[in-house]
């Protein structure tokens, strides 16, 4: 099976600091691939490079066989890569539905449509409601985003990524700051998404990672030290030593 995403010898240096160090990674279509690693291992830097907000110092990123290393973020979005943010990043002074509808609208190609009110474009509004049903926020559709709780924001983040109908979802710590109940719901939600699309999941919550992931890569100091199924990783000595052993 050919990989949907290939990362080859990726390096990112900030001055003297190497955040990504000769990183290699392959994602198989349809898998949920988790990336774990201690704090400062360069996980968010990796997501930023994959989504185009950070330019690598060297190395290549191939998406569906095409070199996208130097494509700007909005082009990558159109090619089918969507990301969520570790720190919630939504448009707070718009309603929940407007946030999702904007993400749907982005797929139209361009939005130089000046006259018809956006809220009367049925396709976008209905599509947004459908997604909100899926992430459990349909009842709050008309509320201002700033009024929602942190947990609801995490779900919205996921909703925005779904609206992009991306083939590849980059999820940067979707469970960050969630209580146990909310985490459980998020795991359910992610489970329901599995199979449709490829998901790269960055997560600290080990229970969640081992429950969800098809494969896991372990990142230490910007370098992948091991990739394998959850049970491979669990039994890998190097990993236990570098990471799991600490706990």
């Amino acid at each position: 099976m050919s990989a949907i995403l290939q990362v080859q010898n990726l390096v990112k240096q900030y001055g003297g600091l190497t955040a990504t160090d000769d990183l290699n990674l392959e994602l198989i279509p349809g898998e949920l691939h988790a990336i774990i690693g201690p704090n400062g291992a360069g996980k968010t830097t990796l997501v930023s490079q994959l989504s185009g907000f950070v330019t690598p110092t060297s190395g290549k990123i191939l998406y569906k066989g095409k070199d996208i290393t130097h494509q700007p973020p909005h082009t990558r979005a159109h090619m089918g890569i969507a990301r969520t943010y570790q720190i919630t990043s939504l448009i707070l002074d718009m309603t929940v539905q407007e946030n999702i509808a904007l993400a749907l609208q982005a797929r139209d190609g361009h939005s130089f449509r000046f006259f018809k009110p956006a809220r009367s474009v049925k396709r976008l509004q209905d599509g947004a409601m459908e997604i909100l049903e899926k992430v459990g926020l349909a009842e709050k559709a008309q509320m201002k985003t700033s009024e929602l709780s942190h947990g609801e924001h995490r779900n919205m983040e996921l909703g925005v990524a779904l609206a992009a109908h991306a083939d590849l979802l980059l999820l940067d710590e979707p469970m960050a700051g969630l209580g146990p109940d909310e985490t459980g719901k998020m795991i359910e939600l992610l489970t329901s998404l599995k199979g449709d699309r490829t998901i790269l999941l960055i997560e600290h919550d080990m229970d969640a990672v081992f429950a969800l992931a098809d494969r896991i890569s372990v990142l230490v100091y910007g370098h992948v030290i091991a990739t394998g199924t959850p049970s491979d990783i669990r039994n890998n000595e190097k990993v236990q030593h570098a990471y799991l052993g600490e706990e």
């Binding site: 907000f53 909005h74 707070l92 407007e98 982005a106 139209d108 000046f114 976008l124």
Partner: peptide, 28 residues
Amino acid sequence: RMVNSRFGMVLRGSKGNESRMISIGYPT
């Protein structure tokens, strides 16, 4: 009309959160 149109939503979204708008695919 313009600020409530699809164009207007993109304009206002870019004010609210530019990097988000870029990451969902808008060349702001």
